[in-house]
Amino acid sequence: MKDLFAVVMLLGIYSLLSASFFVAMDAVDVAFTEAAVGAGISTLLMLVVITITGRSEKTTRHKPLLALLVVVFTGSMLIYGTFDMPYFGIADAPIHSHVAPRYIQESMKEVGIPNIVTSVLASYRAFDTFGEVVVIFTAGIGVMALLSVGRRPEENEKTTAIDDSMHEQYLVIRIVTKMLIPFILLYALYVQFHGDFGPGGGFQAGVIFAAAIILYTMLFGLTTARKVINQSFIQFIAAAGVLLYGCVGIVSMLNGANFFDYNALASDPVAGQHLGILLIEWGVGCTVASVMIMIFFNFAERREMQQNNEKINNIEGDSL
């Protein structure tokens, strides 16, 4: 397949398919995330990159047979290796009988949240989730370190004009989107708060929130979007999210309990758990949303810069 566009679209479809597979496997939270991330954000990012780098692969390549052989051999070894595995769906596999039962049976009493995934995520293994937020934060910083162009050069009037005219073409879409965006944002908030009871939570909410902003940006241009949300504000939110999350842990530590021991946050342990989870979900949501926006902005900025350069080159080329 030479057309990268098709490749990326297929990847998106693959992600969606696996998301639906996850639903079938009872992993609704995961499915939600995979749909938002795999099919949404990463496909989007890849598309942006393709617009920068060109959408077709160079043709003169052939598939190394040796690699194929190795891969097939390794794969068959692995399949051989699966023969001792517990069968699919068996209820008394070791995996279901050691640690997990406690989560299923006790979490309501200990954490007080019906969504077990959320209670494991946010309380039992809160530190993993903290790590996850930090990973996202790291990625955001990393992308910024790679792509940020520093102080934006004075906009070339001509190119901005071209931009604007381009954006004005899709009037219908713009109006529809304008109407949609508040709802998306609202939905994001719903997901944020509903995480305790159904699928969802800070991470999914953050992604949806970011999606709304990204949608806005795509239709109204980066410059306009920048006016609404400026760079340092996003950075602030991203940092604040991580700090909020961490501070919950520190506060519980100052209250004499272990790090992330929410029981110490309020006089009643369950209330403490509620409070703690609420706060950290906010932290997650803030960081994820702002980092996603940050990453997209940086990508888009590069793209714009490159297009501007090309245009300027074209103009210069014409005038010559």
Partner: peptide
């Protein structure tokens, strides 16, 4: 995790020997 149901290293080290001779653990 599939073979032992735990992620804690200490716990793993206690539970792995029971299933040590399976190909899954080798893998």
């Amino acid at each position: 995790y599939q073979m032992t149901g735990t992620l804690n290293m200490q716990d793993l080290s206690q539970r792995l020997p029971d299933v040590a001779q399976t190909r899954t653990v080798f893998t």
